[in-house]
Design a protein around this nucleic acid. Structure first.
Length: 838
DNA sequence: ACCTCTGGCTGGATAT
DNA sequence: ATATCCAGCCAG
């Protein structure tokens, strides 16, 4: 690769061109590679493209001769082409280059297969040339310095800074671990540019109100295009004429068009200027619709900046982030946003995260006045804009940091799930180390078996232990938990797909408890090293800094973002090995992690008991302890560190905690006054609002209990609360909405074949009344006295409500906390029904 | 096309 | 009537 030339002819330093890599892709079947780069100074987006005849060309603003000088790209194309040629020529049964290529789906698209007898990829010392694609340096979403030849050098965090962090925050690490930690810190601490973006949303108005607009056959006109950008553009492009005598909105501007083609042209001109386009479901709807509609209306192809791919839509220059797909991602929903939203609609996500929803409509789009349509449409773009900018651009920074950790382009971070990110991360490491990437079927053949039986029918292997709780109310309970237990186990037990059931005879006695799997003693496992390092970085650096009050809010929030992103990876790092579709699917790894986890967990409980501590409850990695001697707790913690090198940490103290006989069901009040409710029906989000409110009333009472003496007084108040709500129900002094169960349809109603749960019944009634229902919708229904026993809330009347069913539901909800407190539900409602006679 | 895992509780539908 | 399965939601 040519060296960077930083000085001009007279010796003055030349300004480096700083490029932000938005994305890169390599198409193995066609042998094409391309990069999308953003000039961080000018904001200009550049596309580099390479094809197999080794004559790179570009169709944006880089001169051809500059690209022809790009050695990395030329080499990549040449190497790939050569491999494909070789692959087709060789067909014997030995381990040859053919098989190496065949083992990587990126190289040949997985079209032909050869059989290899045995997997010994971790021993193989065969170079894998595709490593050199992009000189093995390009991580999507990093900043690069580019010289005039187009040679890219990553701008990582400063070595001195990284060494300082290592020295101060990571005490006892091996040289290998230090190297790994250094590598991560250089990436994670590297600068992030503040990129401009534009949010886009379109409205279609059809000839008939019932027809669903089709992006592939865009018959209906685009009536409005709303845009909201990071640099202050707030605009609605509207088909039609301005109404006379109507005041213009202040929040945004309207441009009127009498020609749809002209409107689309204007839209394309605008969005082409932005490096990031944000949509909600733009992969499947907005962008394909705009492109196809544009072509249908006769706009020249080169004037339409949208490209449609197999997986979604993107921009010729610039990248497209589909927030629908991002927010739908379960890991993001749970770990990044604490499960704060439930529905995967713009309305659901925005209401939960921003507190603002879509503009409510009482008529169809076609019936709206131009101004109303503009306002409706603009709100959607505005919501998208706000979702991106909230909490100091949390969403954008999260996407970028996941891209860096997972070596996944930002667009793909939105499109793929966590298994895709981890796949990319592991593949990257394989290439870097010149390892063969095993084919799935080969790996499965050698390491497919499991040796434990799951507790639950239909599961593949045994998981965690849940300790039978001691029922009743317990005061002064201390909770300890193992910090990131499973990632720590991966690290400490050297678990990885290549180290579990390794080929060495000498290792076969290194058994994992309760299984017949053994673990390699000779080599450090790749997953163990990577996840171990990420865990250490999260715990020792980012979590510490995120909670460091001496830093300003903005900095803390940045550490918080990285910390969250790491958490997503760590939490999935074990599960992916038990996921059939994961390309490195290896059940013994998942099974081994769970088995070691169980072993450690059991030992900890035994240790506590041996010290005379009472064990109230425990689940997977947490134990609830009660003792008069706090120093014993400290002893358990020290024991865990010295025996297993695991961090068993103090989590919290409960002033009191209430258990029924049920596992994963309890209520506790911490010494900080926080009420923890776990698993109880009263906490679930599908239950009627009135029960939730009644439950919250009771919780408020319980949070005041500080001692055993308080309890009796509070018990009386609890009885009052419940009986008040009971009376309201009995007298039907509630809104129908408050009585609604809200349950999600996991598939379209027709596809429920084996059973018809209540919410599906209700959904079918909606369909009969021509209300569209799709998978993912949350159905609100109430229990009624008519034949089916349920009715969608829209059609229900208060007189028809089956009050007895609701009383039963109240009973089962409250008994979960009343039983251990020795309060009889029946005695409460008995009293109140007597009162209601008086 | 996409989808990390197992354990545990609930109500209700369905089978016996 | 009772057991079993299905589906949804939650804990970790």
């Amino acid at each position: 690769m040519p060296q960077l030339s930083l000085f001009d002819a007279v010796g003055n330093p030349k300004p480096k061109k700083r490029l932000f890599l938005l994305g890169c892709a390599y198409d193995g079947q066609k042998g094409k590679a391309y990069l999308k780069l953003l000039d961080t100074k000018t904001g200009e987006v550049i596309l580099w493209y390479d094809n197999t005849d080794h004559k790179p060309y570009c169709f944006t603003n880089i001169p051809l001769e500059r690209l022809e000088n790009n050695e990395a790209l030329k080499q990549a194309g040449a190497v790939a082409f050569e491999h494909v040629e070789k692959y087709d020529a060789i067909s014997d049964g030995k381990i040859t280059m053919t098989k190496i290529i065949a083992s990587d789906p990126l190289a040949v698209g997985g079209s032909k297969k050869s059989i290899r007898e045995q997997i010994d990829c971790w021993e193989a010392d065969i170079p894998y040339h595709l490593n050199y694609l992009f000189d093995n340096q390009l991580i999507p979403s990093l900043i690069y310095a580019a010289d005039e030849n187009g040679t890219l050098t990553p701008e990582l965090a400063d070595d001195n800074v990284v060494d300082e962090i290592l020295k101060r925050f990571f005490k006892t690490v091996s040289e290998q671990e230090a190297e790994e930690l250094r590598k991560w810190l250089k990436i994670l601490e590297a600068e992030q540019p503040r990129i401009e973006f534009i949010a886009l949303d379109i409205e279609i108005i059809g000839e008939s109100a019932t027809r669903v607009p089709s992006p592939s056959h865009p018959e209906d006109r685009v009536a409005a295009i709303s845009l909201a950008s990071s640099d202050g553009l707030n605009l609605v492009l509207l088909l039609g004429k301005a109404q006379q005598g109507v005041e213009n909105p202040t929040e945004f501007k309207i441009e009127y068009f009498d020609n749809e083609q002209a409107m689309l042209r204007r839209c394309f001109e605008i969005i082409e200027k932005y490096p990031i386009i944000v949509t909600f479901n733009g992969d499947d709807f907005d962008l394909p619709y705009l492109k196809n509609r544009g072509e249908k209306l006769g706009i020249e192809r080169e004037k339409i900046p949208i490209m449609l791919g197999r997986e979604g839509a993107t921009l010729r220059t610039g990248i497209h982030l589909d927030l629908y797909r991002f927010f739908m991602n379960k890991s993001i929903q749970i770990y990044a946003f604490d499960n704060r939203y439930r529905e995967h609609t713009l309305e659901g996500v925005a209401t939960a995260l921003l507190g603002v929803g879509k503009v409510p409509l009482t008529k169809t789009l076609a019936e709206l006045t131009p101004l109303e349509l503009a306002e409706y449409s603009y709100r959607d773009a505005k919501l998208l804009h706000d979702l991106i900018t909230m909490n100091d651009r949390l969403v954008l920074r999260l996407i970028a940091v996941i891209a860096r950790i997972g070596r996944t382009p930002m667009e793909d971070v939105c499109r793929h799930g966590v298994s895709g990110w981890i796949k990319n991360l592991l593949y990257w490491e394989h290439r870097r180390m010149n390892w063969i990437i095993p084919r799935k079927e080969d790996l499965l053949q050698v390491k497919g078996q499991v040796s434990t039986k799951a507790v639950i029918d239909g599961k593949k292997y045994r998981g965690a232990i849940v300790v039978e709780p001691i029922p009743g109310i317990h005061f002064g309970v201390i909770v300890l938990d193992f910090a990131s237990l499973y990632p720590s186990v991966l690290k400490e037990a050297n678990l990885s797909y290549e180290t579990v059931r390794c080929p060495h005879e000498e290792c076969k006695d290194n058994l994992i408890p309760e299984t017949d799997h053994w673990v390699c003693r000779k080599k450090r496992g790749i997953q163990s090293l990577i996840i171990g390092s990420l865990r250490d970085i999260r715990v020792s650096w980012y979590k510490v800094k995120a909670g460091d009050k001496s830093l300003d809010a903005e900095q803390r929030s940045w550490y918080g973002v990285v910390q969250r992103a790491l958490k997503v990876f760590l939490n999935a790092s074990y599960g992916v090995f038990g996921f059939e579709e994961f390309p490195l699917y290896c059940p013994p790894v998942a099974e081994g992690v769970a088995a070691v986890g169980r072993y450690v967990f059991k030992q900890a409980i035994e240790k506590a008991k041996a010290l005379g501590i009472q064990v109230i409850y425990g689940d997977t990695d947490s134990i609830f302890l009660k003792t008069d001697k706090p120093e014993l707790i400290e002893e358990v913690v020290k024991w865990a560190k010295s025996t297993f090198n695991l961090d068993l940490e103090f989590d919290k103290t409960y002033v009191y905690v209430v258990f029924s006989r049920r596992k994963k069901n309890y209520l506790g009040v911490t010494d900080k006054g926080v009420v923890d409710v776990k698993g109880l029906t009263g906490k679930k989000r599908n239950i009627p609002v009135f029960i939730k409110e009644a439950f919250d009333d009771v919780l408020r009472q319980l949070s005041e209990v500080k001692s055993e003496e308080d309890l009796e007084r509070v018990k009386a108040n609890i009885r009052n609360s419940i009986s008040t709500w009971y009376r309201r129900l009995k007298n039907r002094e509630l809104d129908i909405e408050q009585l609604a169960f809200r349950v999600m349809l996991s598939k379209t109603p027709e596809r429920y074949e084996k059973t018809t749960p209540p919410h599906v019944k209700a959904a079918r009634k909606l369909q009969q009344n021509n209300i569209k229902v799709v998978a993912g919708d949350i159905i609100s229904y109430v229990k009624t006295k008519d034949k089916d026993g349920v009715a969608p809330v829209q059609f229900a009347r208060l007189e028809n409500i089956d009050v007895d069913k609701y009383i039963e539901y109240m009973r089962s909800t409250f008994e979960q906390i009343l039983d251990p407190l020795e309060i009889e539900f029946d005695s409460i409602i008995g009293v109140s029904s007597l009162e209601s006679f008086l």
